[in-house]
Design a protein around this nucleic acid. Structure first.
Lengths: 348, 348
DNA sequence: GTTAGCACTCGGTTAGATAGAGTGCTAAAA
DNA sequence: TTTTAGCACTCTATCTAACCGAGTGCTAAC
């Protein structure tokens, strides 16, 4: 759908203005700041129509208009300029990411910090690729009538173990079967390679050990989650307070809590590689997470060889998408450069 | 100074009550909740005296009394019960810290999380001992007329380098002298072993390289700072929001910003080992950090062999010192146990 | 030294009243 | 048919005044 040039002009003006002022924008204000050669009455009419279309909203009668999520979406997709970032920003990024490749985590942290700093929004970054360890060997044994100890040896020689409890008495033969099944079917695989079919086969082979199988899978999922958490970095959460939408304690609390649980960020949907410039923008209720219903996420992909990682920003829907997109894209591209320039050293 | 039994009783009652209610406590309230067999008028008189002594404060005339920092101090030193923690807490701690020794950082994180969880205050933890790497070798060379590259090889084979600039042209001979001095005097030492005398000797030996020496020291200090940051863990910052004193956005912001900079916590004064139970309490303005002027820090020491580490809590001065002290002390002692039980594994 | 009683203080809450910004609508102008 | 000027209307934010009630300090009696 296209709105026609004047509606677009007005929508763009409203969004731009609101991004700057954080106040509902009135028809007269548009006249002052943008050179629209129509009267305020006309603008009012257009704004009313834009509202019925769902692109603008009114906090209450006799207030100015505010972009709706759909309005932001239209703005981002159709109206937003593609202007690059200022040379000072570019220099800032260049110099900040010059020598930071001691370790992967370090670079991530630095890039996140930088992104947060220049955009004034909290930033997060995910390591390039989830190169999870694969399973090497499973050992299960009963430690007493009701408890089973599950030991997993990973290919990297890390050993993890957990006591797995279940209401029913342990059946030795079932346990042996389950152990054999796990070893035969999972050895050499990573957690994320366990497909539903594979699980079915496991279940069929484990017979009476089904309850334990389930517990073991939970254990593996937890391990996986732990690994994942370590690979997320969050920086600059405090920038939240710079934005008036988070002057409400409850809101700030909710968002900060969300940000402080790395699991949340690790499981954010990741951008389609097809998105323009490699930057994807998810606006308000487009987010699945409840805590992000009135927030926007801007995320960029960076590639390291065949792996890809992500760096993103989280802020109010009233974000300067244009500036933020350009900055984030540049940071991401810079990260790629740094990775390429440096022979990839694994352990610090 | 001792106050006499009745004043003490009243002071204790005020503090206990205020810790629970977060509201200024009135003379009548004390009658209801504590079995003081005097009238409210007497209590008022006593409270007035306690106020002139600086142990209580009045937010305004016609409001109840609130403990002053000095009042808390007296409470903590003289009045506070030494009651241990509940068995449920003990069990909680026991079970949470049972199997968490995969890595040092991990245990720290877990202990911090636990401490924050059971006390409802943000917690931090420092690794046992700063076992910084020692210097192995210094290499300095001029890369152009005005810039010097400084390379430090650490005993752990890590290599750090930095470009060190100074307004004056590089003098080769001075550089050679400085390099020799650094290598002879610092090899085998850690940063924290560099004494002022040592620095003097370095300076004497480096002659015309003094400006570079200074820059090199800054570099080393930075490295040291980086190392230190990695060894601090902060958990449960969000518990801040549970306390009414942080309903003010500005206050919450300030404190959270403080907490999110690990350098702040790494440089907190550490408890005297002599303190009772190994727990030290620093109340409000007793803190040196500006951000902590109306906050209290409770910290405990734990020992691992000859090394010692710290775990602490940060919250409003209106803290349940008694409960919190007991809990923290128990967590710290539990950490010691876990460390001892497990052969100390260095790298994860 | 303690207590009852009372006047006084002060913050918090409520209720109007007011101002002002901004809209929607209508009728005239282009 | 579209645009514009004008105006009535709406709603929020702010200010003021009044009031309530909790709590104190002081005085005088116990």
């Amino acid at each position: 759908m296209s709105l026609g040039p004047r509606k677009e002009q007005i929508l763009k003006a409203v969004v731009d203005q609101y991004i700057r002022s954080a106040e509902p924008v009135a028809s007269k204000q548009l006249l002052e700041h943008w050179a629209l050669n129509v009267s305020s009455a006309t603008i009012r009419n257009e704004m009313a129509e834009l509202e019925t279309m769902g692109l603008l909203e009114q906090p209450h009668t006799s207030a100015g208009r505010v972009p709706s999520p759909a309005g932001y979406r239209y703005y981002v997709d159709q109206l937003m300029g593609k202007t690059g970032l200022s040379t000072s920003d570019r220099e800032h990024i260049d110099s900040a990411l010059k020598h930071k490749v001691e370790s992967l985590e370090r670079l991530l942290a630095e890039a996140g910090k930088l992104a947060a700093e220049i955009t004034r929004h909290p930033a997060y970054a995910l390591t390039p690729t989830q190169r999870y360890d694969s399973f090497e060997r499973f050992v299960l044994f009963a430690s007493d009538l009701l408890t089973v100890v599950c030991v997993v040896v990973m290919a990297g020689q890390q050993v993890n173990s957990r006591v797995v409890r279940h209401g029913e008495p342990v059946i030795e033969s079932a346990l042996a079967q389950l152990t054999a099944a796990l070893n035969e079917l999972l050895t050499g695989l990573r957690y994320d390679q366990i497909t539903p079919e594979l699980y079915d086969r496991l279940e069929k082979r484990s017979l009476d050990g089904r309850a334990y199988l389930r517990a073991v899978m939970v254990f593996l999922a937890d391990l996986h989650g732990q690994e994942e958490q370590l690979r997320v970095v969050v920086e600059g959460s405090m920038h939240l307070f710079e934005h008036p939408e988070y002057r409400d304690i409850a809101k700030a609390h909710r968002m900060l809590s969300y940000l402080s649980d790395k699991k949340n960020l690790a499981t954010l949907p990741q951008p389609y590689p097809t998105a323009s410039r490699g930057v994807e923008i998810v606006i308000g209720p487009e987010n699945v997470a409840a805590a992000l219903q009135d927030a926007s996420v801007v995320m960029a992909t960076y590639h390291v060889g065949e792996m890809q990682g992500f760096i993103g920003l989280i802020g109010p829907t009233r974000m300067d998408y244009q500036a933020v997109t350009a900055k984030l894209a540049y940071v991401a591209s810079k990260m790629e450069q740094v990775f390429q320039g440096q022979p990839q050293e694994e352990e610090k």
